[in-house]
């Protein structure tokens, strides 16, 4: 059963981590990293989302079936984004009209 009561201290530490990562993402955005700016921003946002899912949403105490559902939700999003971007990236490869 998932009625595991987490110490308050843990939640405060999670909040502190999220605040630090928010400061980091703003700081990183002010530095010109070329094409890497977006990658860094998404990596930090991904870390923050992971921390929220793992600690605040208590997936760390969830049953395997629930964890599988969480992973499947993220996996389907990744499949959608990969198929979509592979379409747009490869459109010009055959030398036909690109549309836009």
């Amino acid at each position: 059963m998932s009625s595991h009561v987490t110490p308050k201290k843990t939640y405060f530490a999670v909040f502190g981590t999220l605040m630090a990562l928010t400061a980091l993402t703003v700081a990183a955005a002010t530095v010109d990293l070329g094409g890497l700016n977006t990658v860094v921003a998404l990596a930090i946002a991904g870390c923050k989302a992971g921390v929220v899912i793992w600690f605040f949403m208590e997936v760390r105490h969830a049953r395997p079936m629930t964890r599988l559902t969480v992973a499947a939700g993220i996996l389907w999003l990744v499949i959608m984004l990969i198929l979509l971007s592979s379409d747009y990236i490869s459109r010009g490869w055959l030398g036909r009209s690109q549309g836009w």
Partner: peptide, 29 residues
């Protein structure tokens, strides 16, 4: 209350992605 929490945290996660993608993307230019 746990289910309510899941919903609230999810909405928080959406904003965590929206903030850098909408507000911060032109900051270094």
């Amino acid at each position: 209350i746990e289910i309510m929490g899941l919903y609230w945290h999810f909405v928080d996660i959406v904003w965590i992605f929206l903030f850098p993608l909408l507000y911060l993307l032109g900051l270094h230019q």
